[in-house]
């Protein structure tokens, strides 16, 4: 119940920041347009753009609530409800954004496996929310957090996809699932991508929860 209220109000807060929201929505479009002539490249860049946009938005939402969250804990909310609610809102928003861009891509490109393309984009959005949360937990200041996310996305974009560095990046799953969806390869790419995505989600969501559980912990003072 508390998590749902936190999620609904977080979504409402973001929806009121219209300029920021428009820029976040438009960000993946620029990634898509620069490689629009190549289906595989445009889809991968679009997906990375969604990941970057959603993770950065989550970073700012989580950081903006630093003054409120300790008071919510004092009022009786659990850390899981407070942080989980915010991640839930950002995940839902990210999946909606991914679905919107998938419709655009499905109309504008020839996709052999459109359902898997949607999976790739939605999974990336679902990974991006806890990634933004984890960076917010590790780097409480917004500038430092935004620069860290920029670095992650730049490395993800530039690293050799077959090398170890790319595999250690959070959105490597998108490349694997994308290869299956667009280049019509065997299902081993899909399963590898899903497994990488699941492990990444667990690390990011678990890490975010653990760090905030520590940061928002309240001592149990005995009753007088």
């Amino acid at each position: 119940m508390t998590a749902l209220v936190v999620a609904a109000l977080s979504a409402r807060e973001v929806s009121r920041r219209r300029t920021a929201l428009l820029l976040v929505i438009a960000l993946p479009l620029w990634f898509y347009l620069v490689r629009r002539d190549q289906t595989g490249q445009s889809m991968r860049m679009l997906t990375l753009g969604i990941g970057w946009a959603v993770s950065t938005l989550t970073l700012f939402v989580v950081n903006a609530s630093r003054g409120v969250d300790p008071r919510l804990r004092l009022s009786g909310a659990s850390t899981a409800a407070v942080i989980g609610g915010r991640l839930l809102a950002m995940t839902a928003g990210g999946v909606a954004l991914a679905t919107g861009y998938w419709i655009l891509a499905a109309i504008d490109q020839h996709l052999d496996r459109p359902g898997t393309a949607l999976l790739m984009m939605a999974l990336t959005a679902a990974l991006a929310a806890p990634l933004g949360g984890l960076v917010a937990a590790l780097l409480p200041r917004e500038l430092e957090g935004a620069l860290a996310l920029l670095s992650v996305c730049a490395v993800q974009m530039l690293a050799d996809p077959a090398g170890l560095t790319a595999k250690l990046m959070p959105f490597w799953s998108a490349r694997e699932i994308g290869t299956y969806a667009i280049d019509a390869t065997g299902p081993d790419y899909l399963w590898r991508g899903l497994a990488h995505g699941a492990v990444t989600w667990l690390i990011c969501a678990g890490g975010t929860w653990a760090l905030f559980a520590w940061r928002l912990r309240l001592p149990r003072y005995p009753e007088p």
């Binding site: 119940m1 508390t2 209220v5 936190v6 109000l9 409402r12 807060e13 973001v14 009121r16 920041r17 903006a64 609530s65 003054g67 409120v68 008071r71 919510l72 804990r73 009022s75 009786g76 909310a77 409800a81 407070v82």
Partner: peptide, 18 residues
């Protein structure tokens, strides 16, 4: 939270208290 109204704050903090 700057982007919420007073009523929404009441809802948020009330939810935290059950």
């Amino acid at each position: 939270a700057g982007w919420l109204t007073a009523d929404e704050h009441f809802t948020l903090f009330g939810a935290a208290a059950g």
